[in-house]
Simulated scan of single mutants.
Amino acid sequence: MVTGASSGIGQATAIRLANSGYHVFAGVRKEADGAALQHQAGGAVTPLILDVTDEPAIREAAKVIEDSGLPLAGLVNNAGIGLTWPVEAIPLETLRWQYEVNVFGQVAVIQAFLPALRRAKGRIINIGSIGDRLTLPFAAPLCSSKWAFASITEALRMELHPWGIHTVLIEPATIRTAAVEKLRTDAEGVLEQMTEVQRAYYAVNYRAMTAKGYAREQGGSDPDAVAKVVLRALTAAKPATRYKVGKDSGLLAFVARWLPDRTFDQIRFKLFGLPPKFGSAS
């Protein structure tokens, strides 16, 4: 079962797994997405209309797999959204929605599919982000939700150990997907929602961050790089607990772990075109 399979990493994963001999149940947003996925895959794909915030739809998807009689070899939790906002300006309902999709929705899916996973000794493969090791300016909504999801994954890894259920976290870094273009187009919409005072505070730096982020992501790895790692995590006799994947993933993980905070801050200021001098807006 692969959630968020309409495009990007989820789509690439569904195709690779189907081509590797798995029967893939693919959570998609629209029937047209499912039809396109079936056309692209060389193996068996069953599309399921699935919104991870819709609990009845999650239960129905679990029932479809149950009724299929197929053992559930793995659950790939890929569905998610990424929002960028200044913390001072983000509406709380928007922040809650980020967590509804990236955290609560993931837990709802895991809970629904765990009975089938337990019977088959299947695996849980959670698609996190290198952002669960570091935080970027204006990306607190996305990164903090990924930190939370990484913590939940770690707890599950220990809690499900007695049943022989491997729980794996995959941490993509710079991956080129349709979400990259969305980052740029969404930025102006975010600015429009801010108050005039908030725009005066943040517009220049926020635009600089999104422009730099867009440029970096355009040169990112293909989503199939993540799909290959998902397949490895599903088939390895003893999978790693975490897999870093994508351009710059190793470097980012290294500097996040070992550099002092202030030094790493200066690097992030430079990377995203933000003023490096403390109090420069005073």
Rank of each mutant, 00 (worst) to 15 (best):
G219T: 10
N205T: 15
G105T: 10
Q98T: 13
D222K: 12
L48T: 05
P91R: 07
L48A: 06
P223W: 03
A237E: 14
M1L: 06
A215H: 08
F264D: 04
R119H: 14
L259W: 13
S151P: 04
A233D: 00
A140F: 08
S280H: 09
R119T: 15
N102Y: 13
I110G: 04
V229F: 01
M209E: 10
R123F: 10
E192D: 12
A36G: 14
R184N: 12
Q266L: 12
V87Q: 14
T84N: 13
T135I: 14
P239Y: 01
A179Q: 15
P260T: 01
G27W: 08
K238D: 11
T195I: 08
A211D: 12
T210L: 15
A140I: 06
L160V: 13
I81Y: 01
A240M: 04
V180Q: 15
Q193R: 15
E171R: 13
R257I: 00
T177N: 12
I165R: 05
D51N: 09
V45G: 01
G128D: 09
K247M: 05
G10K: 02
V229E: 03
G105A: 05
D54N: 14
A173W: 03
D33R: 07
L191Q: 08
I65T: 10
A237I: 04
I130T: 02
Y243V: 00
K238M: 06
W147A: 09
V229P: 02
P141L: 04
T13S: 10
A89D: 12
P223N: 09
V2T: 00
S221W: 10
A108H: 03
V76P: 03
K270I: 08
G189C: 11
W147S: 05
W85Y: 14
E100M: 13
A112F: 02
I125E: 04
G128R: 09
A150P: 06
L134W: 10
L83S: 03
P162H: 14
A173T: 13
R157G: 07
L37N: 01
P91N: 03
N126T: 14
S20A: 15
L259M: 13
A36T: 09
W163Y: 15
P56L: 04
E159D: 15
A35Y: 06
L136P: 00
F254N: 01
R268E: 07
V107R: 08
L134A: 05
A36D: 13
N126L: 01
L136M: 07
G273D: 04
